[in-house]
Amino acid sequence: MGGFVDGIVLHQILQWHQMLSAKLPPDTLLNKEVNMFWDGIFHAFTWLTTAVGIGLLWRLIYRRDAALSNRIFVGGLFFGFGLFNVVEGLIDHHLLKLHNVREISESQGLWNWGFILVSLLMLAGSWLAIQKGRRDVHRQLPG
C-alpha cells in the first residue's frame, strides 16, 4: 500500500519526484520517459509484493490459530505502509540518493526526514493497534 501511495500520489498525481529524479532530472522528454520506465518497474515490484501479501493472507485464514480481527488487519496494513516507507526512504532518499521526496524545494532534507518521521509514527501507531488487537483476541478465547 505504501508503495502504491508513493508511486501514484507522489510520482504521478503531485509529480514531486520520480524514481531517478535526483540522478536524472526529468527536465527533457527523454529523461521524463526514462524516469517513467523506472517508475513502472517500481510499480511492478509493488504489484508483485501485494500479490504475495494477498496469497499469504489467504493461506493464514485457513489456520485454526489465526487471530482474525479488524484491528489486527487494519493495523497490519498500516504497519506494512509505514515499514515500507521507512525502508524505502532510508535506502532511496538517504543511502542511494535516487530521488528526494520533494525534488523542487529549498529544503529537500527536511522533506526527506519529515517523510521518515511520519512513517515512523505510522509504524508505532499501527504496532500498538496490532498488540491491542492480539490482546482482544486472546481475551475472547474460551478458557
Binding site: W38, I41, F45, I91, L96
Partner: peptide, 9 residues
Amino acid sequence: FILLPFVVV
C-alpha cells in the same frame, strides 16, 4: 537499487 527496498522489507 529499485528492488533493494522490497528485499529488505
